[in-house]
């Protein structure tokens, strides 16, 4: 036990402090000049790190997971059928749905036979993992690009159906709708081929399925 003796030899240049410090000053000077010139230019984002936030915003990915939206189909009908999958899959339990039956004469408003009478997402609880989007069979709930979610009261941070549909309409207007992603190719059940050794073990009796017991 005890700490090992450490012996490292310094070169003369390292010993003298100043040589390396001067080299370092050279590097920082290069950066200074580069940024000094850049900062004199007009226009947004002249210096690599800095976005002058409220005036100048960075481009965010089209599949960004931001504030949710509830989608309408081409005929303007709500896609959501209030099946509750998103509610069940949500790890943060932030979605609350009330289901309603579509009455006669309301078919122009809703795409399915049922609809969500209320749809609330508690954005304070939400962790923006995107599992609800994945769970939805109808493609009705999608995480959009909104990220400015701060507000003054807790109640204001609960997004209701109106706000969620509003998000969609705004995104549609601005052409910021999420591109449809092709379905992920799934391996056929039969060709469960050895796709690389999954934890190869020298003595680990193969990928034994099931529980083996015995002394």
């Amino acid at each position: 036990m005890g700490k090992p003796e450490v012996k490292r030899d310094y070169t003369l240049g390292e010993r003298l402090y100043l040589v390396e410090i001067v080299k370092g000053l050279g590097i920082t000077w290069k950066h200074f000049m580069k940024n000094f010139r850049a900062s004199l230019q007009k226009g947004p984002h002249t210096v690599p790190t800095c976005w002058q936030y409220p005036w100048d915003k960075r481009e965010i990915s089209p599949i960004f997971r931001g504030e949710h939206m509830l989608l309408l189909d081409e005929e303007g009908r709500e896609k959501c059928v209030a099946c509750g999958m998103c509610q069940r899959v949500c790890p943060a339990k932030c979605i609350t749905i009330k289901r309603g039956k579509v009455k006669e004469g309301e078919e122009a408003k809703y795409a399915g036979k049922t609809y969500c009478a209320s749809f609330e997402i508690d954005l304070l609880r939400c962790i923006f993992c995107g599992l609800c989007e994945e769970a939805c069979n109808k493609g009705a709930i999608v995480l959009g690009q909104g990220y400015e979610l701060a507000d003054f009261s807790r109640q204001a941070c609960v997004a209701d159906k109106k706000r969620l549909i509003g998000n969609f309409l705004r995104a549609k207007e601005e052409g910021r709708l999420k591109p449809k992603r092709p379905p992920v190719p799934v391996a056929g059940a039969k060709d469960a081929k050895a796709a690389g050794p999954q934890k190869a073990k020298s003595a680990g009796g193969g990928q034994g399925k099931g529980l083996k017991r015995g002394v």
Partner: peptide, 11 residues
């Protein structure tokens, strides 16, 4: 040893 089991290669 009282009991020994193996499951997916983990003993």
């Amino acid at each position: 040893i009282i009991d020994i089991s193996e499951f997916h290669g983990d003993i």
